[in-house]
């Protein structure tokens, strides 16, 4: 990683995460599955048009030890990108992210599974991917197997598992980590009814044990129920940061306004109020930019 680890410039010990003026820019030219021809065309036809997009812009906040911060916002507001940066998976394009402690993510459900390895071997593989020491992982293996309720299947190749068993195993591994600073993308709920109840309890335990939590979710009951603070993102910027109840209320209000806007636009369109003129202009613009 281009990550530079150095003497952390004074970060107070009671601060778990410190995010200063963070920006993340995606280069749209490269994010598409490119072929050389497309690139060449672009280079030839439109020399230096800026085709980048800021998924996050000027984001600044701190997470204190003991805090649980819920990050909410509409789809595409930058919530998941924020979590990816905090986890170190993508690098900031601007600003600074500092952390005081080990960051664990629970976004890794099933990500590293290999179909040809057995359940037990997959536990070891997942541990190695997450950077957990193998002795530590071996110590936790019985507990993981027990929690996942897959019994004798644990020594069968993963491809013989049902999707429910896979999900349970993934969940058990993900939540077996020692949480220090914990990042969660959507509260992972999986499996049958009984397992869901059990996993809910497990998440609550893990959340409680972590020193600090950042949780991205669409389920507002988790935000109001567990978070001590909430951050509302919109188009990559923080629009509100504060008490969960207030922020959630604002989020719901925003969402309703957007829905109302959309309805109004549709109604207008149906009534033919948008003149053919502007529609044509819009189309022409779209063609040019293609």
């Amino acid at each position: 990683m281009g990550k530079k680890e150095m003497e952390a410039p004074a970060i107070a010990s009671d601060v778990a995460l410190d995010v200063q003026d963070l920006g993340v820019r995606y280069n749209l030219q490269l994010t598409k599955k490119n072929t050389a021809r497309e690139t060449l065309n672009r280079l030839l036809r439109r020399g230096r048009e800026d085709r980048s997009f800021w998924a996050l812009r000027e984001v600044t906040f701190q997470v204190q030890r003991g805090e649980s911060v819920g990050v909410i916002g509409a789809n595409g507001a930058g919530k998941s990108t924020l979590l990816l940066v905090l986890a170190g998976i993508i690098q900031p394009s601007a600003g600074v992210v500092q952390s005081n402690g080990h960051i664990s993510t629970l976004l890794s459900l099933q990500a590293g599974f290999d179909q040809d390895l057995t359940g037990r071997e997959n536990i070891a593989l997942a541990g190695a991917l997450l950077g957990v020491d193998h002795r530590e992982m071996e110590r936790r293996t019985p507990e993981i197997i027990d929690f996942a309720e897959i019994g004798a299947f644990i020594d069968a190749p993963l491809k013989t598992y049902s999707s429910g068993m896979r999900a349970k195993l993934g969940f058990s591994i993900a939540t077996a980590v020692d949480p220090d600073i914990l990042l969660l993308d959507e509260v992972l709920q999986t499996g049958d009814e009984a397992f869901r109840e059990k996993s809910r309890q497990r998440i609550i335990d893990v959340l409680g044990a972590a020193k600090a939590v950042v949780l991205v979710t669409h389920d507002m009951s988790w935000v109001t129920g567990f978070c001590t603070r909430a951050i509302l993102l919109d188009e990559g910027r923080i629009v509100m940061d504060g008490d969960p109840e207030t922020v959630v209320a604002r989020h719901i209000e925003n969402a309703e306004r957007r829905r109302a806007d959309r309805r109004a636009r549709r109604a207008k369109m149906a009534a033919g109020e948008i003149e053919a003129e502007s529609l044509r202009a819009h189309k022409a613009k779209g063609r040019r930019s293609r």
Binding site: K3, A8, V96, S99
Partner: peptide, 23 residues
């Protein structure tokens, strides 16, 4: 659950581009 507090503080920024030797 006791957690060892020796995890290094990490510092990530766009400002530094590590050189070849560092990489």
């Amino acid at each position: 659950m006791p957690i060892a507090n020796d995890a290094p503080a990490t510092y990530r920024t766009s400002a530094v581009r590590p050189g070849p030797a560092t990489l």
